[in-house]
Design a protein around this nucleic acid. Sequence first.
DNA 1: CTAAGTGTATTAAGTATCTTAGTACACTTA
DNA 2: TAAGTGTACTAAGATACTTAATACACTTAG
Lengths: 123, 123
Amino acid sequence: MIIVDYSDKRPIYEQIAERFQTLIISGVMEADEKLPSVRSLAVELSINPNTIQRAYMELEKDGFIYTVKGRGNFVKKDEELMNRQKEKLLAGLKEQTMNCLRQGIEKQEIIDCVERAAEGVTA
Amino acid sequence: MIIVDYSDKRPIYEQIAERFQTLIISGVMEADEKLPSVRSLAVELSINPNTIQRAYMELEKDGFIYTVKGRGNFVKKDEELMNRQKEKLLAGLKEQTMNCLRQGIEKQEIIDCVERAAEGVTA
DNA sequence: CTAAGTGTATTAAGTATCTTAGTACACTTA
DNA sequence: TAAGTGTACTAAGATACTTAATACACTTAG
């Protein structure tokens, strides 16, 4: 479920946070579902509990989870958050699209690329 | 021409290398055009010459420039490199597109986003 | 109530990377 | 010859990431 890529330059806590973020937004994890405890996930991934804690702090800061002391961390889902996330994703896509265009790639090539990506996902 | 963003988390040498990369691929800088010298760019940007040197090393490693000792660094352009770069950009775009799709954004929304981006660039 | 499991907070240390500083050498060109 | 160029090296500082160890407050199962 959660994988740490040590060849990735990004910090571990960031990888973990992003992974949960994807699981939450994509619907694999449902609202109020419990996340692994700080300690258990640390053991599972063979990393320090502090690093997991850091990842969960990020997730809470960004509104993806909520915390109940003594009980654990749980998935938080609200429409506004989903919309914000959606806009963020589209903004990134737009940025990358413009980058492609600026470097001489034709619009049609980009559209084709998107179509092919869509096939891979819907399949 | 070259800007360093200190709020950017990425290292300075990487920002500089990427900036030149964009200038080269987009055609703003032409083949065999001379890059600023290590020392002069360091003065201009108020950073250490070693950091510029690091950026130029990256660019040479990736095939975007070539070096002549005692003379300077110059833009290198060959078709193969351009194609590789193009494929790399499209692969990144595809990755991001799939990410959007997986998180519930409709294909049409993505197409619209691309269209809007195209308007901004061609205008 | 007790014990186990939970989040949270703190301090310290180790590691890696980035950046700067200073110096030196070989090359090219005016 | 002098100035400008790339290159190489060592040393030091700064920052971020990660680990380690410990402690405390809370909740839940028994």
